[in-house]
C-alpha cells in the first residue's frame, strides 16, 4: 500500500528538538482527522523515540536524527526515527520495561511507552552504525465519538 502523504525531517540531536519533532509529526498527522487522544498517543511515542536518540545514540556529541512520517488512506500512520549513533547491542534487553543504562533520572520506560501508545514498534540496530525505530499507529478518527 502506498502512503497518501509523506514528509521527512532532519534535525540535530539537541534536546530542545524533542518538542519540535513531536509537534511537527502531530501537525502533519492531524490531516487524518484523528481524535485528540490518538494524536496525544502519537506525540508521546515520537517524543520517546527522539529522546532515545538524543540521550543514548549520541551521548557525548551532537548528531543527525532523520524522521520520516507516512500517512495511509485507512488512517494508519508510520513514523520512522533513525540515527547514526552508537547502536544498541541487545535490543531485547533495551526494550524491557525499567531497563536503563543511565539510571538517575531516566525511568527506563521509553520503549514500554512507545509500545503502549502504538499498535506496532519495530527496532533495528547495529552497534556503531545506528538505530532505526518504526512506530505504527492506526487512527480511528474523530467520527468514532460523533
Amino acid at each position: 500500500m502506498k502512503p497518501i502523504n509523506e514528509m521527512k525531517l532532519q534535525f540535530q540531536s539537541h534536546s530542545v528538538n524533542e518538542a519540535f519533532a513531536r509537534a511537527a509529526v502531530a501537525a502533519f498527522a492531524a490531516q487524518l482527522d484523528p481524535h485528540i487522544e490518538e494524536l496525544a498517543d502519537l506525540k508521546t511515542a515520537v517524543s520517546e523515540a527522539v529522546t532515545n536518540c538524543i540521550v543514548h545514540a549520541y551521548p557525548h556529541s551532537v548528531g543527525e536524527i532523520t524522521l520520516r512520517a507516512q500517512l495511509f488512506a485507512d488512517g494508519l500512520v508510520k513514523v520512522r526515527v533513525r540515527d547514526r549513533g552508537v547502536g544498541i547491542p541487545d535490543i531485547k534487553q533495551a526494550m524491557e520495561p525499567l531497563f536503563t543504562t543511565l539510571g538517575g533520572e531516566r525511568a527506563g520506560l521509553g520503549f514500554a511507552v512507545m509500545e503502549s501508545f502504538c499498535d506496532r514498534v519495530t527496532v533495528t540496530s547495529r552497534v556503531g552504525k545506528g538505530t532505526c525505530v518504526t512506530l505504527v499507529r492506526r487512527f480511528d478518527g474523530r467520527d468514532a465519538d460523533g
Binding site: 506525540k43 508521546t44 517524543s47 529522546t51 533520572e105 525511568a107 520506560l109 511507552v113
Partner: peptide, 13 residues
Amino acid sequence: TFMDSSGVGFVLG
C-alpha cells in the same frame, strides 16, 4: 499539557 516518560523519571528523582 504534555508528558512523556521523563515525567516518571522526574517523580522518581
